[in-house]
Design a protein around this nucleic acid. Structure first.
Length: 805
DNA sequence: AGCACGCCGACT
DNA sequence: GTCGGCGTGCTC
């Protein structure tokens, strides 16, 4: 009896956001499993899809086509992830295939190729023109740009002289290397060495190496080449003589290969507070009940050790653990510690890996070869089947929210998975998100407080520098007080971390005669001066232009650059303190692979006195010689049109302050600000998270924002401004009609940056508490055609938005 | 998404 | 009459 498969097809549109049914041919019946990645005919193409159900009766009224092939040996999706993809797609109002694709490593994305092949009726001349240079009698069509050739192909297709065949290419490749084994017995090698010509140096080298290190065989070819100082050519010669045997073996790319393991593999002695936290979590682990903990511990209170000991507990309970960190490249110390404690049982997943490395790590996880996974946001989808513990470190970080589609929040996915597995979820932070802290208040989460540092070291003294009153010896960016602080620290051979949340040199160019500001031609945003590359760059779309010498409007030479970025401050600082060495760390200096690590290692080795950077220096760094932290402009985040701007500022200041005085030396923090009385800055100065929580909650209640209200952001975009606005107003009236009058519908308003990459953006914000009809309304908005295909209007939905633009 | 089909104006 | 541009609708 033949069977049928329901397949989610690799076409991300509203129309295809459902299953398509295919018949399973008998020769594939043993291979096709639920979760398999398969190749199917779709229209006249062949595409990739994922099997979500297998059934024995047809539910499709038409005639099902046959499934063509199964791509992987083992299904990439298990039933949990299939279930999750379904729920998440409807929760986020996106396509299920998009969710599936974010769950899986990149190499499992399909790579489609089209080839032109001759038919029987092809004429000799057409064949000559199209195929004479093709060995395989087929012409790859993917990147043909020659117009004459395209015309020729079209004509041949029309005359049925040729046809197009479609291929689904699998990008997933195992990494293969050559291994060398001995071909003869040891006494034979001894004899050979004795009888060989004295000028056959390479042969002698190899024989001596074999006799000296027989235990090293089989050996990887590249390693042998290196150790015995031979060439691969030579090795293939001696292979012919039968001295050695070469074979291909599959190996895993190992991203942790060059991580040196520190000697901190054993558990540390816990403080009373740590002990209490570990006990509480371990107790929940033992009960195997779904439970959420909020671990609120000040910077330096030793949250990491709590994580490590509870992971160990989960493992002894025969369970697996998953730990998320905001961005691995920025928290290498954390990864190193997990690796040191749990060794080969650990897999890492993050954006710094190559596609191949990521695929190998993922396969180790999917094969259940590891018990601990550490990774950034998307690691929340790691296919562990026996999860007992999920940890989210720095749970308040906005990096856990993906800003591209599907716009999921890893914390929410973690809750879903914890429930599914009856697992324990630990949310850790020095400055928990208000959402999480409020849930702890309501006892939905269990709050675990850690208020002391194990070293008994006090939190650093924080001083505010009021920039409206401060003294400046030169430019207005660096106050004398901060400069003096830096000089004194350097004089004591100690180090400084400086935070400036703006990259580039100067962020806008103004003509002092006509007031003209140089803007990006595609976005309504001023261009930033980059002195190192001698260019004006758009930080939104990447547009680059040369630095103007004259005003483009009035030709005046009285142009000036305003708004200091990291490049400018670096230059300024070097002038003011010539004896200092400065390392700059921002997206521009860390773009290359391993760029973060290089800078951090150099700073750790005290090759520089000052580490100057954007917010990427605020997280997780632990350098014991840093005794001064300076914040150059604490106000930069406060002016954003975002209800979380105070929270972000408070978090950033608290986080960066925690970088000072990590070991025996007391730390100090200097914060330059134009708003010294702002509550976020005042409370950060006093290390008063609980005070901030109370104050900010009152403001959120007043403003009807989360955690009191839910949010939903609708963005309408078009190349034509009126069109975007018109559709936005239509959507608003539809919402008004369908939702209760408890819901607040704000806008439509043009985005703060109205035009981006030549598109206009209008947005509508819905605030609500309970709206049973909301999802069905949003679904109709998504499906409803507000536009013709001609001047396209796109509608984006963001459930629980974090970025407002 | 990509592909076909069908409609309509334009060109040899 | 046929070519090509664009809008519409469908893919198990």
């Amino acid at each position: 009896m033949s069977k049928f498969a329901d397949v989610i097809v690799d076409v991300a549109t509203q129309d295809t956001n459902k299953t398509f049914q295919y018949q399973i041919p008998s020769q594939l019946s043993d291979l096709v499993k639920v979760g398999s990645r398969v190749e199917v005919p779709f229209g006249r193409r062949k595409i990739q899809g994922f099997v979500v159900t297998i059934k024995s009766t047809s539910s499709f009224s038409g005639k099902s086509k046959n499934l063509l092939s199964v791509i992987d040996e083992f299904p990439p999706l298990n039933s949990e992830l299939l279930h999750l993809s379904d729920q998440l797609a409807s929760h986020l109002l996106t396509y299920r295939i998009s969710v599936i694709q974010t769950m899986l490593p990149n190499v499992l994305k399909a790579n489609y190729q089209r080839f032109l092949q001759p038919t029987d009726s092809i004429s000799e001349s057409t064949y000559q023109q199209l195929f004479q240079n093709q060995e395989t009698k087929q012409l790859p069509l993917n990147q043909i740009k020659d117009y004459e050739l395209i015309k020729l192909i079209q004509k041949s297709l029309k005359n049925k002289e040729t046809k197009i065949v479609y291929q689904v290419k699998n990008k997933a490749k195992d990494k293969v290397t050559t291994q060398i084994d001995l071909g003869l017995g040891m006494p034979v090698y001894q004899k050979l060495l004795a009888s060989i010509r004295s000028n056959a140096t390479n042969q002698q080298k190899l024989l001596k190496f074999i006799i000296k290190n027989p235990q090293k065989f089989p050996i990887i070819q590249t390693q042998l080449v290196k150790e015995a100082e031979l060439s691969t050519n030579f090795l293939s010669e001696v292979e012919k003589k039968g001295w050695i045997k070469r074979s291909k073996i599959q190996i895993n790319r190992n991203p942790l290969a060059d991580l040196t393991i520190q000697n901190e593999a054993s558990a540390k002695v816990l403080t009373q507070e740590q002990e209490t936290a570990v006990q509480a979590i371990n107790h929940a682990l033992a009960k195997r009940q779904k439970q959420v903990f909020l671990l609120e511990g000040i910077t330096g209170s030793g949250k990491t050790e709590v994580y490590l000991q509870t992971i160990a507990k989960a493992l002894t309970n025969q369970k697996q653990a998953l730990m998320l960190v905001p961005e691995i490249a920025l928290t290498p110390q954390m990864v190193r510690q997990v690796f040191a404690r749990f060794g080969a049982k650990v897999a890492v997943l993050h954006s710094g890996l190559s596609d191949g490395e990521r695929y190998d790590e993922w396969r180790r996880i999917n094969g259940q070869e590891v018990d601990v996974v550490v990774g950034a946001r998307s690691a929340i989808f790691a296919p562990l089947q026996n999860l007992g513990l999920i940890i989210i470190d720095e749970e308040h970080e906005s990096t856990y929210k993906q800003e591209e589609n599907p716009k999921y929040h890893a914390r929410e996915v973690a809750k879903w998975r914890a429930k599914y597995h009856q697992a324990v979820l630990v949310l850790g932070s020095a400055t928990p998100s208000l959402e999480s802290r409020a849930r702890a208040q309501k006892k939905r989460y269990q709050l675990l407080l850690m208020t002391k540092r194990p070293t008994q070291l006090a939190l650093p003294q924080v001083d505010l520098i009021d920039m409206t009153q401060a003294h400046f010896s030169s430019q207005l960016d660096l106050s004398d007080e901060l400069i003096t602080g830096i000089k004194q620290t350097i004089a004591k051979k100690q180090q400084v971390i400086l935070l400036l949340n703006r990259r580039g040199y100067a962020n806008f160019m103004l003509c002092r005669d006509c007031g003209y500001v140089l803007k990006c031609p595609h976005c309504d945003i001023s261009l930033t001066l980059h002195k190192d590359t001698q260019q004006m760059k758009c930080h939104y779309c990447g547009y680059e232009a040369s630095i103007p010498k004259r005003c483009l409007e009035c030709q005046s030479t009285r142009i000036k650059f305003f708004g200091s970025g990291t490049q400018k401050i670096e230059e300024l600082l070097q002038q003011l303190i010539p004896e200092s060495t400065i390392l700059r760390m921002d997206v521009d200096t860390t773009r290359r692979k391993g760029g973060h690590q290089k800078i951090l290692d150099a700073f750790g080795n005290h090759e520089a006195d000052v580490l100057l950077g954007t917010q990427m220096i605020a997280k997780g760094l632990d350098f014991e010689n840093v005794t001064l932290v300076g914040v150059i402009n604490a106000d930069s985040g406060l002016s954003f049109p975002d209800f979380r701007s105070s929270e972000k500022t408070f978090d950033l200041l608290t986080q960066v302050s925690g970088r000072a005085g990590r070991a025996s030396l007391p730390g100090k923090v200097l914060i330059q600000t134009y708003n010294p009385n702002h509550y976020a800055i005042q409370l950060a100065k006093n290390h008063n998270y609980e005070g901030f929580y109370q104050k900010e909650m009152a403001i959120r209640r007043q403003g009807q924002y989360p955690p009191y209200f839910y949010l939903n952001l609708i963005t309408v975009t078009s190349k034509l401004e009126q069109k975007a606005a018109m559709v936005a107003f239509k959507i608003k009236s539809l919402l008004k009609k369908e939702l209760s009058d408890q819901a607040l519908i704000l806008g439509p308003t043009p985005q703060a940056v109205t035009r981006l990459k030549d598109h206009y953006y209008y947005q509508i914000l819905i605030k609500y508490k309970v709206e049973p009809k909301l999802y069905s309304v949003l679904n109709t908005i998504k499906t409803q055609a507000f536009d013709s295909k001609k001047d396209k209007v796109n509608i984006y939905l963001d459930v629980d938005p974090y970025q407002f633009n």
